[in-house]
Design a protein around this nucleic acid. Structure first.
Lengths: 226, 226
DNA sequence: CCCTAACCGGACCGAGGTCCAGTTTTGTTC
DNA sequence: GAACAAAACTGGACCTCGGTCCGGTTAGGG
């Protein structure tokens, strides 16, 4: 039992497991516009569901996004929502997909300093700043999508982020344990922490940003810029 | 609406709000043995509930700790459990109280290097190691008790930890933004991260420990020991 | 046109959390 | 030390919501 068979692996019954979840592309950047193979009606319902969910958020906040409400608003049954997105987290993640892919595209192939071409330290700094701003923009959604501590780090988009950060670190610190350091850096950008600091402690964004720059400098043992 | 009035503040009805939750002592160390003022029967039920919960964990794992199951096992009604502990998280936290207080006592008044008397850097290093080992010991419970991203940092025991870490940092780096740095350091010790690394990625404890020592050295810009 | 895999809907379940009428404890007053 | 009133506690019915299941329906290739 426990977090019962996340990705297939334990789906005995007949309805054909199919690929139950979104299967978001790992490092395969923004290209693939949509699901590879979805029956026409399924794709249509998917779009309706996302639209309905977005509308519900706009109207009642993220707390109003009930699976049943979304299903009703989209004119489909509840089972359909779960079949398409797996669970509530999956639906919320799908709503974040757009900004997620944009960020990935930016740091993988966008213009410097985020994209390739700039020195690794600069790219690291830019990555943090970009993530901070994305966090405050979509804080509610990011927080709501972040349940289940055992899955927090498993999601492909986070893995990609971690891999990227570790790679940048490796270019700066060839001999350090860059995987662990990358985790530390990303933890600073955790939406939950950003929420706590900005909304519960009233820390202004400038201080958060300065904190990031300082942190990068310390972790990489480089001099802070300027 | 939203995270509806956590601590009192919005409790209109008559049953008298009382102090709904545990109100764990902030920095007031291990002293106060129990709740300040609890009616005799209430205290007895509280003990029964905790005992029942512990037994359920031992038997069926933390997933078996259903509020209803605990209530039944303790021979009380479900409402009683909620009145006493607020919610499931509160109950789980209460189960962790013992080890929490022990840790607090250790770093506030125990023997060096954890307690006062050792150089701040050493105390910081010892703190991380102690927390790492406590984490692996009680991982399941810590994970289960950690829901609701908006509350992760609000809990008194975490605040105390953060305050302490920030104080140690301040002694080493008088001019840095020690509050933010403390958050970074503590994030490395997050049970969810420890779980991910040890159980999902197979990272051995030695590496985690070395990572902590290295991290402390980098953040404080000191030389790693030895 | 037909067959099958994929999909759909909504009844159903379990668990967290709320509510309130009734009971017990405690302390006060005589 | 008995009676009493207010405060505190109790239990379990009730609600909501995430998640599962499966009989019926539909899309779309052959």
């Amino acid at each position: 039992m426990l977090y019962a068979g996340f990705m297939s692996a334990t789906l005995p019954p007949f309805p054909k497991p199919q690929e139950p979840f979104e299967a978001p592309q790992l490092l395969e950047v923004g290209s693939a516009p949509e699901e590879p193979c979805l029956r026409a009606d399924a794709a249509r319902n998917r779009a309706r569901l996302l639209e309905a969910a977005a509308r519900l958020i706009a109207e009642h906040g993220v707390a109003g996004v009930t699976m049943e409400a979304v299903a009703t608003a989209a004119g489909v049954g509840k089972g359909t929502v779960f079949r398409r997105f797996g669970d509530r987290t999956g639906l919320l993640m799908a709503l974040l997909d757009h900004s997620t892919h944009k960020l990935q595209a930016d740091f993988l192939g966008g213009p410097p300093p985020l994209g390739p071409g700039a020195p690794p330290v600069d790219r690291l700094r830019a990555l943090g700043v970009a993530m901070l701003y994305r966090s405050v923009e979509q804080l509610d959604l990011l927080l709501a999508a972040q349940t289940e501590p055992t899955r927090r780090f498993s999601h492909p988009s986070l893995r990609a982020l971690h891999t990227h950060a570790a790679m940048l670190l490796r270019q700066i610190l060839p001999d350090a344990d860059c995987e662990l350091l990358a985790h530390t850096l990303l933890a600073y950008l955790d939406p939950a922490l950003v929420h706590h600091l900005t909304r519960q402690c009233g820390v202004p964004m400038e201080r958060l940003e300065a904190g990031w720059v300082d942190l990068v400098a310390r972790v990489t043992r480089t001099e802070p810029p300027r």
